[in-house]
């Protein structure tokens, strides 16, 4: 256990005197997080905001046609085109 303590002491001293290394150690993960968030966001947006034009011609005028019309509207992946 004492030997482990000396190893920690050695690493502490080495890190303390390596300012560039220390900065890289803490900054690089932060930069990576920001970079990955930006990259992921654009791909996520492409997935969630994709809209497929959907033509709905409702000649039913009954309950079933109305139900289909209502159910289709809130879908984010389609853009309802009415006639």
């Amino acid at each position: 256990m004492r030997k482990f303590g000396y190893l920690l002491y050695k690493d502490y001293l080495l890190l303390k005197r390596d300012v560039a290394g220390l900065l890289l150690m803490f900054l690089m993960p932060a930069i990576l997080v920001v970079l990955m968030a930006l990259l992921q966001e654009s791909s996520y947006r492409a997935l969630t905001e994709a809209s497929v034009p959907l033509l709905l011609v409702n000649r039913d005028q009954g309950e079933l046609g109305e139900a289909i019309d209502n159910r289709s509207r809130p879908r984010t992946y389609s853009r309802l085109t009415e006639r």
């Binding site: 000396y6 002491y9 050695k10 001293l13 080495l14 005197r17 390596d18």
Partner: peptide, 12 residues
């Protein structure tokens, strides 16, 4: 270890 003093090296 070059960035440590003689004493620190020997202590480790």
């Amino acid at each position: 270890f070059p960035s440590l003093t003689a004493y620190e090296n020997l202590k480790i």
